[in-house]
C-alpha cells in the first residue's frame, strides 16, 4: 500500500482519523433518510384542512407561536456562552497538569494560574448569583431599579 501520511501511524491508521467519524455520521444520516424515504413511499396521504390545523387541545389557535418569549431564556443562553468559553480554556490545562506540575519552577505557576482563573470564573458566577439572575422565579420587589426604570419610561412617553 502506498504511504498515506494523512492517515497517521500504522496501528491507528483509519481508526485515528476524522474521516471515519465523518463516514459514521454519514451512515447514520443516510440510514435515517432512507427510513423517512421508505415511509413516505408506502404511507397513505389524505390531508384535509381540519387535520392540518395546529394542535391546541381542540381549540382553534390564535395567532402564530413565533413570538417574543421570556427574556430569562436569553439570560441563560448568555451565561452558557460565557461559562462554556471559560471552561474550554480549562481542557488543555487539565490534560497537561500531570505532565507539567512536577517540572521545577513551572509547577507552582501551572497550579496557581489556574486557581486564579477558576477564581475569576467563580467571581463571575457569584456576581450573577448576587444579582439574582440565576433565580428562575423573581419577585418584582426584589428589584427596586425596576420601578425607577418604569417611571423613567413613563416620563419619556409623556414628554412631547
Amino acid at each position: 500500500m502506498t504511504a498515506m501520511p494523512f492517515l497517521g501511524t500504522a496501528t491507528s491508521a483509519l481508526t485515528g482519523h476524522y474521516a471515519t467519524v465523518l463516514i459514521f455520521v454519514l451512515v447514520g444520516f443516510v440510514f435515517a433518510g432512507l427510513a423517512l424515504g421508505v415511509a413516505k413511499l408506502i404511507r397513505p396521504s389524505n390531508p384535509s384542512p381540519a387535520k392540518m390545523t395546529t394542535y391546541e387541545c381542540g381549540e382553534l389557535p390564535i395567532g402564530s407561536s413565533w413570538i417574543r418569549f421570556n427574556v430569562r431564556f436569553y439570560l441563560i443562553a448568555l451565561f452558557f456562552i460565557v461559562f462554556d468559553v471559560e471552561v474550554i480554556f480549562l481542557y488543555p490545562w487539565a490534560v497537561m497538569f500531570r505532565t507539567l506540575y512536577p517540572i521545577a519552577g513551572l509547577g507552582a505557576i501551572v497550579f496557581w494560574e489556574m486557581i486564579i482563573f477558576l477564581g475569576i470564573l467563580t467571581l463571575g458566577l457569584a456576581y450573577v448569583w448576587a444579582k439574582g439572575d440565576l433565580d428562575w422565579v423573581k419577585k418584582l420587589t426584589e428589584r427596586p431599579e425596576n420601578g425607577a426604570a418604569t417611571a423613567a419610561l413613563e416620563e419619556e412617553a409623556s414628554a412631547p
Binding site: 435515517a32 423517512l36 397513505p44 392540518m52
Partner: peptide, 24 residues
C-alpha cells in the same frame, strides 16, 4: 411506518422535516 403523516399547515416546512432526521 404505515401511518399517515399529519402535518400542521403553519409549520416551517424545511426545518420541520429536517428536525427528526437530524435528531437521529
Amino acid at each position: 411506518v404505515f401511518k399517515e403523516d399529519v402535518q400542521p399547515e403553519a409549520r416551517h416546512k424545511a426545518f420541520y422535516n429536517l428536525a427528526p432526521w437530524l435528531a437521529m
